[in-house]
Design a protein around this nucleic acid. Structure first.
Lengths: 177, 177
DNA sequence: GATTGTATCTACATACATGTAGGTAGATAT
DNA sequence: ATATCTACCTACATGTATGTAGATACAATC
């Protein structure tokens, strides 16, 4: 386990969230980390390999975080609020959802990464669905899809409008209503 | 007014919707249109100029289309349905909202284009707000923001899931409910 | 008829992105 | 001690993106 590999993944993740996966190069990663770009190639032979590793890792991390929320937070409303605050925090650094960003870059990513993204969103929707089910919603999967859509869209809008509160304006109805 | 200029704008618009503004080059435009890339530079000195012209034109077009809907379609519900069908049609060609795509590319676009995008979304929200006002919603601007967020997000999700119906699942509640 | 403007071209300059080839220095295993 | 592995390096090859300089052909204006 090289620490460098983790640093590459961390940095690539941050840069993808702010500038998109096509918005940075191996040279950028190398310069920031303080090694040569060929060393990035040592860890991730091609940039497509980095994309896949990054999205896979993010999906695992997210799955664990959902499990932690299920154990540590009692009400589904409080869990949803917690998720919203998580994305708002990234947004304050100009970062949107990693997978939302890569979904916009759909056309330039590999079939494998597309599958991973679809699985991420599927997992997210399933988790949301359980929350809305607990909250007694009539159609939990649909509520989940509405929440997820509104989340991804509001992140884009909020960044353009320079107003983080757009996210809660778009989503608070799901937590209270 | 050269027809070439319009063809460049049309093609750039389509490519931005499917691959993003950073997803194509002047060489791509030139090859498709059948001229040399320096001729593209003749019409739009730098790519940033093309971006600005494209977004300005799109904002004007959209404003006119909203006015046409206001005149030609009687109920606000039918107008919203019409807007949804418009985006679904593009989505079937792998194209999402031009400004949603460019919002994802926020970090690499000029301050001027950012302002244009903010104006586009502001105009869109204001128009939606009028529709929800006519429909008797308690908080029209918030309904408008929720609709717009859900629209932009659902386009991303639908393309990744390969399922156009995601859009109507996310938005039908606004038209009926 | 001479000048200017429009729309295109050829040719080139610069920079950068992606990736390969092959080498090195230190740690680990046999 | 030798061989192999890990993590990095230098150097380079190739392709592409953006953009500039200057020429050309043709139409419109003066």
């Amino acid at each position: 386990m090289s620490d460098t590999r983790t640093r590459i993944l961390d940095l690539a993740n941050q840069l993808t969230q702010s500038k998109g996966f096509n918005g940075f190069s191996y040279l950028d990663l190398a310069a920031e980390i303080g090694i040569k770009n060929s060393s990035i190639h040592y860890h991730f032979k091609a940039k497509a390999d980095l994309a896949l590793a990054m999205v896979e890792r993010h999906r695992e991390t997210t799955t664990k975080q959902f499990a932690q929320l299920d154990h540590g937070v009692e009400s589904p409303q409080a869990r949803l609020s917690s998720v919203i605050r998580y994305f708002e925090a990234d947004l304050r650094d100009g970062k949107i959802c990693l997978c939302g960003m890569m979904a916009a870059e759909f056309q330039s990513i590999s079939e494998e990464v597309r599958r991973e993204l679809a699985l991420y969103f599927r997992g997210f929707q399933d988790w949301l669905s359980k929350q809305f089910s607990e909250m007694g919603h009539a159609n939990p999967p649909q509520s989940a899809l509405q929440f997820l859509s509104a989340l991804e869209g509001s992140l884009l809008l909020a960044r353009i409008q320079g107003d983080v509160s757009v996210v809660s304006q778009a989503l608070d109805g799901f937590v209270n209503g």
